[in-house]
Amino acid sequence: MSGRVAQQEGLAAMALRLRAAGVVNNDLLKAVEQTPRGLFCPAPYQEDVYSRRLIPLDCGSFMEGCDFAIRLIHCLNVKPGQRVLEVGTGSGFTAGVIGRLAERVLTIDRYQTLVGTAQKNLEKAGIRNVVVRHADGSVGAPGEGTFDRILITAAFDSLPRMYSDHLVSGGTLLVPIMMNETRCRIVRVNRTGSRFDREDLFEAPYLPIVPQLASFL
């Protein structure tokens, strides 16, 4: 079986798993199909592109299992015309899928190596509305204004107020919160005016966020 056929079958199997789990947003599934994950995945792991396993990246980072990554975007409920911030670029795949749904995406990462690789991956995928920036996600996104949706992929000890302040009214923040030293959970925050409503969703594989830019990576 060729690698291309294997990936097509993996994509179809993943779509069936997601639908069975209640992810039935056709626009989202179409965006995933239009963003070939193999372009974002390191060569040694091409057979695992659409699997549930974590895939190692440079700088000690990783790609989430594909089902988990799409589930996050589903929970974010991205709409056309929206401005989205992602904290933790990784391979660029998640930002790429969101870019198929939103007006504009800003994604930031503390590792210059990951920023450079993600930019190349997004260019290969033909995605032009995603801006990749080398920045310290532990301090928010000063000077970037507000966003309709914010996705954070590194865990905080508590809700990060600086990101809540980046939300427009009607906006949604998805952030991993450390419940204790070993457990992390995805939390969704919806803003309505000055009110913030929190909803705890599901366990996550993320590690605590690391402050400051990386020195050499």
Rank of each mutant, 00 (worst) to 15 (best):
A118P: 04
V168C: 13
F196D: 01
L29R: 03
S51H: 05
M162V: 15
I98C: 02
K124M: 11
G65T: 07
R198W: 11
F196M: 07
D157M: 13
L106G: 08
L106I: 13
V115G: 00
A12I: 14
C66T: 11
M162R: 13
G171W: 08
I177Y: 02
H166N: 09
V87K: 00
L11D: 00
L173W: 05
M14H: 01
N129I: 07
L213K: 08
I55H: 02
H134Q: 14
L114A: 02
A214R: 05
I73L: 09
Q212A: 12
F93W: 08
D109L: 01
E123N: 13
L122Q: 08
L85S: 05
P80R: 12
D165R: 15
V130C: 05
D157K: 14
F202P: 06
V32M: 04
P56Q: 00
A21I: 10
L167S: 03
Y111S: 13
A155K: 06
Q82F: 08
D157S: 14
R110G: 02
E33R: 12
L207C: 07
G170C: 10
V139I: 14
H134A: 11
I55Q: 01
F196L: 12
G171S: 07
I73T: 05
R52L: 10
G140I: 01
G126C: 08
M1F: 08
G116N: 05
S138L: 02
R110Y: 02
M1R: 10
D58S: 14
N26S: 15
Q82H: 06
A31S: 10
Y50H: 06
T172Q: 07
Q82M: 07
G145W: 13
C184K: 02
Q212L: 13
L217D: 07
V175L: 07
V168H: 07
D67E: 14
P56V: 00
M1E: 09
A15Q: 14
L29K: 04
A102Y: 10
R100M: 12
N180M: 06
D67Y: 12
Q34M: 13
S91G: 02
A20T: 11
P211L: 02
